Computed example of a mutant assay.
Amino acid sequence: MPELNTRWDIFCTVVDNFGDIGVTWRLARQLVAEHSLKVRLWIDDLHAFERLCPDIDIEASQQWQQGVEVCKWPTDWPPTEAADVVIAAFACQLPSAYMDAMAEREKPPLWMNLDYLSAEDWIVGCHGLPSVKYKHVQKYFFFPGFQEGTGGLLREKGLLERRWQFQQSPQAQREFLQGLGIDRAEDALLISLFAYENSGLASWLETMASDSTPTHLLVPEGRILADLERWLGVDGLAAGAVHVRDALTVQILPFVRQDQYDLLLWSCDFNAVRGEDSFVRAQWAARPLLWHIYQQEEDVHLDKLDAFLERYVQGLTPAASEAISGLWRAWNAGETMGDHWQSTRKHWPELQKHADAWCLEQALQADLAAALVQFYVNWI
């Protein structure tokens, strides 16, 4: 791919706490690090961003972080020269003054709407197609995805090699976990839980607590803590708290940087994740997983869930497919989890092998950052 001396602007409005900014921050860094691009990341909520990047100055209107120019999205938009490539993440509306600046360029920029991740078949037909125009500036659809004909998934160079080396080193895993204050028992099942509020949690916890196999549940600070407090009968759960009930140990972790979260996913036997960014990272961890999809009006999200499951379970035996699909659907409906969890545990070796195969299959596609750059190269 040729070297590109180009400037890219990425716009992000924070809707889902960390999913939107998680994707755009990861993408911006990769475009800088692997493609030597000049990238500005415009964010409307630096408080949410601070959780992912503690070095951020939430009062600064402009600053540099890891090679990315991070700009606070101002209420009153100042005169700003439009970039060569403009990415509106997740259909966010660009400032009207900036859109005028795009139209005033002698050569209009490439303007792309980076859409939400989906496994639905229709996105293949829409990926890369022209969308609306603003004056003479054309916008294009760009869809991440799990199949050929989409934009692929975010995946940094060498990610799977680093993950494999880490998972082959018990010492590296032990040192990382101990750094977070985690003392894992050798016979315990290690599970991470990052989720939205869920009425099905109590039944899952009860099943793990009564299991013959001990479980160590690691819960990063987040929206699921209120449900966890109700089940434990405690108030004010915070990082560092550890509670034991029969075979279940629950430990609250601090919110960590993205690279540390990767290591957490790689260390666990099973990962419950939410939204989009952590969902993709759990797939690169090559471990069985449970996805809590972001809820949408009229249950549109359930169509997306079913579309992914239909693709994901291919290659599994009918029994294993039914077990993992039942678990996912129950979790996303807030239903009782006990029987579904026990069925999933019966097929653990097959699901582990399948998670590894799925990871390698997805890695055959170009990663999202490379696909965006190639789209620009083809466009010019």
Rank of each mutant, 00 (worst) to 15 (best):
M1I: 13
P2E: 12
N5G: 15
R7N: 14
N17R: 07
R26I: 05
R29D: 01
A33W: 06
K38E: 10
R51Q: 14
C53M: 10
I58K: 15
Q66D: 11
P79M: 07
A82M: 11
A83I: 11
A83Y: 06
D84M: 04
A89N: 07
F90R: 02
S96A: 15
A97V: 06
A97F: 02
Y98M: 03
D100A: 04
A103N: 06
W122F: 09
I123D: 06
P130V: 11
K135H: 14
K135G: 05
Q138K: 13
Y140F: 15
F143L: 10
F146T: 01
Q147N: 14
K157S: 13
R163L: 07
W164H: 10
Q167H: 02
Q171W: 04
R174S: 06
F176E: 05
R184W: 00
D187S: 00
L189C: 00
I191F: 06
F194P: 02
G200W: 04
L201W: 01
P220T: 13
R223E: 14
L228R: 01
W231F: 10
L232W: 11
V234E: 12
G236D: 12
L237W: 10
L248V: 12
L248M: 11
V256E: 08
S267V: 12
C268E: 01
F270E: 03
N271M: 15
R281K: 12
A282P: 07
Q283Y: 05
W284I: 08
R287H: 04
P288N: 07
I293Y: 10
D299M: 03
V300F: 13
K304V: 10
L327T: 01
T344L: 15
T344Y: 11
W358S: 03
E361K: 14
A371N: 12
